[in-house]
């Protein structure tokens, strides 16, 4: 990490400048993370009266816990569906916007605002649409012979949170895919057209491969979003249920720690999540480095 060639000679000032950021980092990030790491090695009773060193037992218990393994499955299914759905729709809309000519800007305006809607609010909107008693969508489904009740049916509950999460994320993917499409050199497309390649062939042979860096970046961002930013969606609608049908890893940390007061297990779960974020961050930065060389 480089500094400027010309710098100021002050010896104390830079520490003062860094102090606020480092203080916040130490007090609210590093210290709690350290606590989580340490707490994962102890078993504590619910009242916090006694604490016993158990080594990696909390982790071993997680690996044996069917509820935890189920949460792993739910998280992967949920993240895969959210990322897949919002990436596909984002790409489709970006391709269409590229063809829309002068109206592209207008469409973009009409499509980007869901980014600003809070996940929890998006979730409530979808709950209302699909509410078994008053929802318009639920009523329409009933007309088609489908009984919709996400309070009772686990698969429908999962579908509901996937739809709400994806709805909010499409605009983000659209923006990045659109930027990616605009960056593809025009002569490349023109040459292919002259050679007689139709729109579909041009997409599969040229456009999609050239979008690969954008796609990889977006997959990482979308998976991170689905893992960590969708807590509000689940908490506001299904509460992890029915049963454990929508309990993701992040939701489970909250439930076991804050409601169940099982600190050892909650800390161990936090540490697992920490490893996942670290991996995702590294992936994201790898990608940025590679982009620089293009």
């Amino acid at each position: 990490m480089q500094a400027k060639r010309v710098t100021f000679p002050n010896k104390v000032l830079p520490y003062l400048l860094l102090a606020p950021q480092l203080a916040v980092t130490a007090v609210f990030f590093l210290w709690p993370a350290g606590e989580a790491l340490l707490g994962a090695l102890y078993a504590e009773d619910a009242f916090g009266l006694s604490r016993q060193f158990v080594g990696l037992e909390n982790f071993a218990a997680l690996a044996r816990d069917p509820a935890y393994l189920e949460a792993v499955g739910v998280t992967f299914l949920f993240s895969g569906a959210v990322a897949g759905l919002s990436l596909a729709l984002g790409l489709l809309l970006a391709l269409a916007a590229e063809k829309a000519g002068r109206l592209a800007g207008l469409y973009r305006t009409l499509l980007i605002w869901p980014y600003a809607v809070a996940p929890a609010v998006a979730a409530i909107l979808f709950w209302f649409m699909f509410d078994p008693n008053v929802g318009v969508a639920a009523r329409a489904l009933r007309g088609l012979g489908v009984t919709w009740n996400h309070f009772l049916d686990g698969r429908q509950a999962l579908l509901l949170v996937v739809l709400a999460a994806a709805w909010k994320q499409v605009s983000y993917n659209l923006l990045f895919f659109y930027a990616g499409l605009r960056a593809i050199p025009r002569p490349l497309i023109e040459a292919a057209a002259l050679d007689g390649a139709g729109p579909v062939r041009r997409f599969t042979a040229i456009v999609f491969p050239l979008l690969a860096p954008t796609t990889v970046f977006l997959v990482v961002v979308n998976v991170t979003y689905a893992f960590f930013d969708t807590f509000g969606i689940i908490h506001a609608t299904t509460g992890g249920g029915p049963g454990r049908a929508t309990t993701t890893l992040v939701y489970k940390v909250f439930k076991d720690g804050f409601e169940g007061l099982d600190l050892g297990s909650s800390s161990a779960q936090s540490v697992v999540l920490l490893a996942i974020v670290a991996a995702l961050t590294v992936l994201q930065f790898r990608h940025i480095e590679r982009k620089v060389q293009y």
């Binding site: 989580a36 960590f228 909250f254 936090s270 974020v277």
Partner: peptide, 12 residues
Amino acid sequence: TLMLPVEVRILP
């Protein structure tokens, strides 16, 4: 701090 979103360090 990039690797420590609030979701991972809730309780502490």
